[in-house]
Every structure is written in C-alpha cells, then in structure tokens.
Write a protein that binds this DNA or RNA. Sequence first.
DNA 1: ACCTGAACACCGTTCAAGT
DNA 2: ACCTGAACACCGTTCAAGT
Lengths: 198, 198
Amino acid sequence: MPDRPYHHGDLRSTLLSSAERTLAQRGPGALSLRELAREAGVSHAAPGRHFKDKQALLDALALNGFRRLQASLERARAEQDHAGSDTGDYLLGLARAYVGFAMSNAALLELMYARKHDSDVSDQLAAAVGDMIAIVLDAISEGQRAGEIIEGDPTAIAFTVTSTLHGFASFSGDENTEDVDESLRNVVRLLMTGLSPR
Amino acid sequence: MPDRPYHHGDLRSTLLSSAERTLAQRGPGALSLRELAREAGVSHAAPGRHFKDKQALLDALALNGFRRLQASLERARAEQDHAGSDTGDYLLGLARAYVGFAMSNAALLELMYARKHDSDVSDQLAAAVGDMIAIVLDAISEGQRAGEIIEGDPTAIAFTVTSTLHGFASFSGDENTEDVDESLRNVVRLLMTGLSPR
DNA sequence: ACCTGAACACCGTTCAAGT
DNA sequence: ACCTGAACACCGTTCAAGT
C-alpha cells in the first residue's frame, strides 16, 4: 500500500473539490491545474485525462454549482409545501435559499454566471438558469391559483422575481448575515406590495 | 519621425482602450499584458511603468466602466428632468440606461462586479455602486414627494430597484434588443404595481 | 484505462541598463 | 520620466512512453 499508488482512483472528483476550495479561499486567479495536480499528488499532466483543458474544469464546477443551488431551492419548496404558508412566505423561503447559497459560495456563483464558458456548456448553464426560474414560476402559478398573486404572464412575473433575487445576491457580497436577512425580507415585501401607493 | 518613438506618449490610455476592446471581443481569458504591449508596439515590460501589475489594469478598467455607467445614468436623469413624466417613466429611463450599458459592455460589467479586486479598489468600486444607487435613490425620493411612490425608507426601496435592474441585466446577456426592452418595461411595471392583487 | 516526464509556447514580474 | 532586454518562475497543453 504505497503512499501514492500509480492510479489515484478518484482524481476527477478530488480535482473538483480541491478546485472549489481554492476558488472559495483564494479566488479564481489562484486556480492552476498544475497546483491542483500537486495537491492531489499526481503529475501535472494527469488532470488532462479528466478535463480536456482548464475551461472544462471550470465548466464542471459551474454545472455542479447549479445542481446544488437547484437542490437548495427544491428543499425550500418542499419545506413550504409542509407549512401552509402564503405566497409571500413561499417566495421569502426561495429567496433565502438563493441568497444563502450566494453568500456561502460567492466566487462559485460568479463562475456560474460567467460569460466565458464554451458555447455547448453555456447552453447547459442557460438551461440550469431556466430550471431555477421554473421553480419560482411554480410558486407564482400556485400563488395565482390561490389569488395571492396578480394575474398576468406567470413567466414574466417569475423572471422579475428571479432578477431581483439575483441582483440582491450579487450586491450582498460579504455582508453581515442578519442585516442581509432583514434587507431581504424588505425586498420581498416591496416586491409583493409594489412601489406605487394604492 | 520614426515609426516607433522611444517614448510612446500615451501608453497608459492606449493599453486601457486596447484591453477593453480585447475584453469585449475575446473575453477576459484573452487579456495578456504582453499582447497588449505588442499591440502598442512597446516592450513587454513597458506596461509595468503604468500598472504595477495585471490586476491594477483590470482595476482601472472596472473603475472606468463605473464612471461611464454613472454618466449614462446621469444623462437619463437629465432627460427626465426636461420631460415632465411620472416616476414610473423616470425609473424606466434609468433602467434602460443601466440595461443598455450592460448589453453593450457585458464582459466589462462582469469585471466591474468581480470579487477579485484589491481591497482598496474594492472600496472604490463599492463607492461607485453606492453612487449609482444614489441616483436611483433621488428618483425614489422625488417620487415620494410627488406621492407616486409609497412611503418608507427610500434607500431600501432604491436598493430593491437597483437589485432588480442588476439581476435583469445579468440575465439579459446576448438577447435581442427589442425583446429585452419589452421585458424590461414589464419588469418596471411589475415593480411599480407589485405582485399582490390589490 | 490511467498516469509520467519531457518539451513547447506562452505568461507576469523584476531589474539593471539604456535614452 | 519612460522604456528595453534579459532573466526567472510559473503556466496550460501535448505526446510518446511507461504501468
């Protein structure tokens, strides 16, 4: 049982998790395939077997991020189904899931939305964004059926909500968590009531 | 009058505009100080006189971007002052300026909001975002005085509006301009009326 | 199937020296 | 004050060869 077997065994996922840690701790500029290989105890050419180039590794990280973000949103949805809460609370739950992910994975989120992915991967990423909006869309459609959301194209409404969440998440970089949550509740409430006096 | 005088004369701004063109046309990965130096007809070490390192050049690009974005928003504000339009139209004007800039400068906008700048520059960038929100804030405060915007902390309202604009701009990458404008009008209208039935 | 080692072309950065 | 040329350490990528 040598220290470094010739076959690493799990190099691909080792590289991915190592890359994500580096991304979070030291930023995208510190990501180097050669350093990842060194950390994995493998030659600098070994990553090439699992990722055709550096961009392929970044693509995999981004897709992975969307999978986890989506899972987090679905969890928020499941929790709301159990509670019998109204649409505003439902949206707040989704908002907290989105912003929570953004604050815990700021650098990854930036990579997820980066405009530098290969075009085929960009399509997959765009689809992932679509899936995300679809979750908000469900909440909106349910809210409309319950009479708690105005009538009108639910896709357009969901797009507005998701835009707000994403913009808010982008702005709430390294803020205090409590302040952010208070601000977020404010934002969701404003979205519901609107800016025009009634 | 030699082809390449020893002193370039305007190297700093030449590097900046060349960098911005490369950024827009070939993405951030294609940006190399050595290539910029080659394009400027100067040695590869010359950029070091004007930017202490590559990040310093990226910082300058980002700050420049915010200056232009802010100028564009102020132009939208000035236009609204001449017209006697209501707050919704005012906000739509600001929204068009923001989204227009975002669509014409997608890669630059990404750089402007990137979380990898030096901490002192990050402060300047955060201040630039603050200045931007302040323009929206003015619109909101005026709207409140005119009775066209609900009462409540105008900063919180401006923050919500700006979040929505930024999120929308992030999502509206390479879409058709007309579709985007229709979608944007929708978003601003939804922001004004709110999602709750009244 | 998976990895190594050498090789290649390209970086960013520094620094003595030139004009 | 501004730029050059050489030098250094570091990349990403490729490919014959090893196990």
